[in-house]
Simulated scan of single mutants.
Amino acid sequence: METNKIKFLETYLSFYINHTVIMDNFYTPDSKYVVLDVRNAPAQIKKDQIKGAVALPAKDLKKHVKQLNKNKIYVVYDWTAGTTLGKEALLVLLSAGFESYELSCALEGWKGMNLPVEGIK
């Protein structure tokens, strides 16, 4: 039974990436990571985002997936880790053959750790 639990947790955790992993080179010109803000809200509701993130709402991702670079690693995030938009976006990306993860701390955790954010215009 414990083996099944361990296997399940390993699989579950494989969908997520920790901010410390991407912070090492996210802000370098040759970064292998692209962070996608997949929240479906308009800019005036969102107000801010992870610095350097690309806004691509989950509802529009399927329409734009062919424009994404297969050589990049995509990290998606939503408001909180408990919401489903990040998981929906991750499903689209994984199904299209992209290496991709959901940000483990979501926007709420990112901001809680005082990591870089920027206003949305």
Rank of each mutant, 00 (worst) to 15 (best):
F8M: 11
C105K: 06
S104Y: 09
H19W: 13
Y33I: 04
F98C: 04
D30C: 04
N40E: 09
N71S: 13
V38G: 01
V76C: 01
L107S: 00
Y33A: 02
K121L: 14
V92Y: 06
P57T: 10
P116S: 07
C105Y: 04
L56C: 09
H19T: 11
K51G: 01
E88Y: 11
A53M: 07
A89D: 02
L94A: 12
G119R: 14
K32P: 00
V35W: 01
E99K: 12
S100R: 05
L36I: 03
E108I: 08
I45A: 11
N25G: 12
E118T: 05
E88L: 12
T84N: 10
T80Y: 07
L61E: 09
L36D: 01
S31D: 05
F15Y: 13
Y12C: 03
K66D: 13
Y77V: 04
K72E: 02
Q44H: 15
G82A: 11
P57K: 12
I120M: 15
Q49G: 09
A96T: 07
E2M: 15
I120C: 08
L91H: 12
K66A: 13
G97V: 10
L68P: 01
V54F: 05
P29I: 06
A89H: 02
F98E: 03
D24I: 12
I6P: 02
D48G: 04
L56D: 04
N18G: 05
T20S: 11
E99W: 04
E2T: 13
N18M: 08
K7Y: 14
G52N: 04
L68E: 02
L91C: 02
D37K: 06
P29F: 10
G109Q: 08
A96H: 08
L93A: 03
V34E: 03
A53E: 06
Y77K: 03
L90N: 00
L9P: 01
D60C: 12
G86S: 03
F98R: 04
S31Y: 10
A81I: 09
V38M: 03
I120T: 11
N18R: 09
V75P: 01
P29Q: 07
S95E: 11
K72N: 00
C105N: 06
H19N: 10
A58Q: 14
K72T: 00
F8G: 01
K111A: 07
V92R: 04
D60S: 14
K66I: 10
D37S: 04
I22N: 03
A106H: 06
P42A: 14
A96Q: 09
Y16G: 00
E99D: 08
Y77M: 05
V34K: 03
T84E: 11
F8A: 11
K63N: 15
K70W: 06
D30H: 08
L85W: 10
Y77P: 00
V92C: 01
F98M: 05
L61H: 08
A55H: 14
D60R: 12
F8V: 08
K5Y: 15
G52W: 07
I45V: 15
G82C: 05
L107R: 07
P29L: 09
Q44I: 15
V34D: 00
K7F: 15
N69D: 14
M23V: 08
C105D: 08
Y27A: 04
